[in-house]
Computed example of a mutant assay.
Amino acid sequence: MDNQGLAMPVLNMAKAINAALHEEMERDSSVVVLGEDVGKRGGVFLVTEGLYERFGPSRVIDTPLSEGGIIGFAMGMAMAGLRPVAEIQFVDFIWLGADELINHLAKLRYRSGGNYAAPVVVRSPYGAGVKSGLYHSQSPEAHFAHALGLKVVVPSTPYDAKGLLKSAIRGNDPVVFLEPKLLYRAPREEVPEGDYTVPLGKARVVAEGDDVTVVTYGSMVHRAVEAAKRARASVEVIDLRTLVPWDAEAVLKSVKKTGRVLIVHEAPKFAGFGAEIAATVAEKAIDYLRVPIRRVAGPNVHQSPVAHDELYMPTVEKILAAVEELMGYD
């Protein structure tokens, strides 16, 4: 949408998501929020702060500590005509609601023959980098991407977080909306104070280049951009924004230009979402590749102890080394 003339406050991601929720609840009375401590407390990261005071307990609902209940309640609400936004306090806990999410909500439209839509957004903080430990730092996005019927969104900026969440809320399919904890408070950027949307399934070219394509999403976008600035090569950085659907066209267009591909994500490398990107590039653009596809990702071990987040996660230095390796291959 056209943002011309809109006021531009400077927000972090938590505030941008909060603004999206406020605006969507003002715009559409069928939008409700539910989850653990989302009401008076405003959520563990204060992302829902102020919603309870503005919209009251009938639209901002503090639930019991039951992820299965939260997602199950949300599905029932959607079948009754509401547009629920359910918060799972940390994505690591979502498996207690996996049956409701994957076997029921994701399949609702299909199994009902189209008689029921499933306009449910399941929001959750995810990822490492804030020293939260084993059970509060995981990156399970590939699991959700493999569950047919779910859309999966991972914003990397405050602007995108607001616009993508608005698109997710307005859609008629269930969306898992993963919010990188590392980015909640920084960076900050101008975010229009008013209505706009960012379409799902459309990647963004963050930095243009001719030698190497770096494909990434979430918190790794910022590390990839920093590595691109320091590289001796010309590096193009693509932020997927959405994993399901993902913008293969944008990636393939870049690969055909550069001939070199580096995929970066903080989830474990084995069977991570990067493997799907690599397979698609190999199937559809192998004739353009000058060197083998390279991945920089988390190791295939459990999340590290609190003191060792940076040993587990891809760093700017690891990304930069991979870029140099690709450039030196031939």
Rank of each mutant, 00 (worst) to 15 (best):
G272P: 03
L96N: 14
E49S: 14
G56C: 15
S234E: 14
H302W: 00
N12L: 13
P125L: 09
L65N: 08
S112D: 01
A14W: 01
A231P: 03
V44K: 00
I70N: 00
L150C: 08
L51A: 14
L108M: 13
L134S: 11
A279P: 03
A267S: 12
R241Y: 02
V33P: 02
N18P: 11
I94L: 13
E266S: 04
G194S: 07
L148D: 03
P158V: 10
R54T: 15
A78E: 03
A275S: 15
P314K: 11
E208R: 14
V221R: 05
F273W: 12
L148Q: 05
N103Q: 10
I293A: 00
A271G: 01
V10I: 15
A231I: 07
D92Y: 06
H104L: 07
Y110Q: 03
L96S: 11
S124Y: 02
G114M: 11
S167H: 06
M77F: 03
N3I: 11
V60K: 01
L240V: 14
K229W: 02
L252C: 04
Y288R: 12
L96R: 09
V205F: 10
L96Y: 13
S234F: 14
G42I: 15
N3V: 08
K15P: 04
A282H: 00
H146D: 06
G298W: 07
L182A: 14
A7V: 02
K257G: 06
L262F: 09
M79Q: 13
Y312E: 12
M1H: 10
A275I: 15
G114L: 11
E226P: 04
G39P: 07
A321M: 12
M75V: 10
A207I: 04
G69C: 04
E100R: 01
V198Q: 00
V206K: 15
Q89W: 06
G68W: 02
E276T: 12
A228C: 07
N172P: 00
T63D: 03
A267W: 01
I277N: 00
V212N: 12
P245H: 13
V10S: 12
E53H: 04
G129I: 09
L82S: 09
G5F: 14
E26V: 10
K257S: 02
A168M: 04
V32W: 01
L65I: 15
K15T: 10
L311M: 03
N300H: 09
R188D: 05
T258P: 10
E24T: 14
R260E: 09
L165A: 06
Y184W: 09
A86E: 01
Q89S: 12
A248M: 02
R54W: 05
E190G: 04
E24P: 05
S30Y: 01
V176C: 09
R260K: 13
V237M: 13
G76M: 07
V316T: 15
W246K: 07
E325P: 14
A321N: 14
D37Q: 08
E179P: 11
I71R: 00
R111G: 02
A297V: 09
